[in-house]
Design a protein around this nucleic acid. Structure first.
Lengths: 211, 211
DNA sequence: CGGAAACCTCACGGGGCGTCAGATTAGTCT
DNA sequence: AGACTAATCTGACGCCCCGTGAGGTTTCCG
């Protein structure tokens, strides 16, 4: 896509684009198997069959490559977030909630390692990572906040609730459950139960309706 | 505590206990200012005025020191979790919920850096860290699950909800909100609103009562 | 085919890691 | 106090990764 630049500012030719892509892919793969602290530039380079110096032509460090990957993953959230565009009040509301939770879990299952590092870096204060995270979660948060506000106007959600706070709380719950369900399932809860329960909490918080 | 051992298995004398403690404290302090990936054994040692080799007498690596710290922090959760021992159905229920959320946030504010690393390591699959996390969160989760189950028996919580799942969801929400509110507040939500809203969701999920 | 531009790598100084043999300190007994 | 012993600490080293800049190799284009 468009104007990705090398570290020295030059635009990338065809060969360079390819190398960069392979470096990104290798980084992604290593992230699956190693903790972030053990992802070495040398190893990324080795995996691509190139030299470490090449890596530094395209990224200042491993984090910067991860940032690009996180940015790419941000786009895949949109179709999930869209599930919030239909109002959840009616009959199919609960089913939409289930669907959202399930797909959110799957999104995380897909990008688990990436999300982990993105969140760590964001929590540690790195502004670039905060931005990607906000861009990603914002797609969901904003829609939930809007829905809550609407139901609040209709008198179904109590006035003491702040729509944006509620949205943040729901996204927090989703995120952590998505990241966590792996640790939970071996402990005697099924995924189905997790999805069903989470969906119901989500549905009620947004719509204010009893289930 | 009592029988803390050195890496070679020998029990620690008075001098050694002190050195170990100072190393732990230094690790904790460095964690406040550096991302975990930049906490160097050399620097911990320097801070204590000792040599890196000394560090390795007591801990296999930085993570192991962090693990001990996380373990210590686990005990401070108990008084917070106790807020769940009184039933939340009655009049003061909502106030108890606010109290819990507020204190949970404060607990995190206090141990932010530590919690972050604990969660990262646990999510990356390190069993020791999963265990501390479960021991910590379990204190809250188990109590919530129990409360939900009770209210479910009384017919206030729908039968499709799994008490343990709901508890996990609530703890997830709490954890993430606690870790996240820093990033949220500069974006135009007040802490009061966050606490109030989170408390209400928590209260309703546990008791099934309208607020 | 030849030259310029684009891309890649060699080779190196710097620094943290983790170990172990040996030095230093504290404790104990006479 | 002196001297012996166990406990504790550290100097010094080999290893490996980092990140850079000068110089080599490939690609592109006339």
């Amino acid at each position: 896509m468009s104007q990705t630049l090398a570290i020295d500012g030059r635009p990338l030719g065809r060969r360079a684009q390819l190398t960069r892509r392979r470096l990104l892919d290798a980084t992604y793969e290593l992230l699956q198997t190693h903790g972030i602290r053990d992802v070495r530039v040398v190893e990324v380079a080795r995996k691509v069959g190139t030299s470490p110096a090449t890596f530094y032509q395209y990224f200042r460090d491993v984090d910067e490559a991860v940032l690009v990957l996180a940015d790419e993953a941000a786009e895949e959230v949109e179709p999930v977030a869209r599930l919030l565009d239909e109002p959840w009040n009616g009959k199919g509301g609960l089913e939409s909630a289930r669907d959202l939770v399930d797909r959110y879990f799957r999104y995380w299952d897909e990008h688990r390692a990436l999300m982990r590092v993105r969140n760590l870096a964001a929590d540690e204060g790195d502004q670039r990572f905060r931005d990607v995270r906000n861009r990603t979660l914002g797609q969901v948060t904003d829609r939930i906040a809007e829905a809550v506000a609407e139901n609040q106007r209709a008198g179904r959600v109590p006035p003491e609730i702040t729509p944006y706070s509620a949205a943040a709380a729901m996204v927090s719950m989703l995120e952590r459950m998505a990241s966590y369900h792996f640790d939970l399932e071996p402990r005697g809860v099924t995924r189905r139960e997790l999805v069903e329960t989470t969906a119901r909490i989500l549905h009620h918080t947004i719509t204010g309706r009893k289930t």
